Computed example of a mutant assay.
Amino acid sequence: MGLEIEANIKRLIDKKEWTIYRLSKESGVAVSALYSIGKKKQGPYAETLVKLSNALGCTVDDLVRGHI
């Protein structure tokens, strides 16, 4: 699950022409947490997904399932 979320985040930040550091600033999620998303088997906490989806202008479902 974490790898799919990581890939979806990568696609979205590339689309916005952001860096991971910009995403961290816009979302309030630590850069270290963003780098570790793909390493977790269960994926990030729901609160983190909400922060990321708000910053990226997508739904949590888009991040988790890849409807991007």
Rank of each mutant, 00 (worst) to 15 (best):
V50Y: 04
A33G: 05
K40H: 00
I20N: 03
D14E: 15
L34R: 03
G38H: 09
V31H: 14
K41S: 13
S53N: 03
V29M: 04
Y45P: 02
K16P: 11
H67M: 13
I37G: 03
L63W: 04
K41A: 12
Y45W: 00
T19K: 12
K16E: 15
K16C: 12
E6T: 14
C58M: 07
L63Q: 07
K10A: 11
V60Q: 05
R11L: 15
E4F: 10
D61W: 03
K39I: 09
D62G: 08
L52N: 09
K39V: 10
K51R: 03
D62H: 08
I9C: 07
G66V: 10
E26W: 02
I9R: 03
I5H: 06
C58N: 05
W18D: 14
K10F: 11
I20T: 07
V31C: 11
S32G: 11
K25Y: 03
L3I: 13
S27F: 00
K25W: 01
S24D: 02
E17D: 12
Y45V: 01
D61A: 14
N54Q: 10
S32A: 14
M1F: 06
D61Y: 08
A55D: 00
I13Q: 04
N8V: 15
S53Q: 02
Y21R: 13
G57I: 11
S24A: 05
L56W: 01
T19A: 12
T59K: 02
N54C: 08
T59H: 01
Q42S: 12
